[in-house]
């Protein structure tokens, strides 16, 4: 086997890389949602209840992407 073939060889399941990619978006999304909620609560603590509910629905939608990303592990096989 020549050196080029050895360098280019990749073993394992490519779905692992897929999970890594799928984690980036939700991570940034949840970071923004939570960061903005902290900002809002710090500015107006009496709004904490309302902001919590909005944060929760924002997290729910963003994390759904991550869940589906991980769950694809069950159907995508190398």
């Amino acid at each position: 086997m020549d050196a080029t073939t050895v360098l280019a060889e990749i073993n394992g399941n490519i779905a692992t890389v897929g999970y890594g990619l799928a984690a980036i978006g939700p991570a940034i999304g949840v970071g923004i949602v939570v960061g903005k909620t902290i900002e809002g609560v710090a500015r107006q603590p009496e709004l904490a209840g309302r902001l919590q509910v909005l944060m929760w629905i924002g997290i729910a939608f963003t994390e759904a992407l991550a869940f589906i990303g991980i769950a694809t592990y069950f159907i995508f096989t190398a």
């Binding site: 939608f61 759904a64 589906i68 769950a71 069950f74 159907i75």
Partner: peptide, 17 residues
């Protein structure tokens, strides 16, 4: 059965949302 598991996870996530 991975396919059934996957589809029920998707159904649960979309339903919960």
């Amino acid at each position: 059965n991975p396919t059934v598991l996957f589809l029920s996870i998707i159904a649960g996530v979309i339903g919960a949302l």
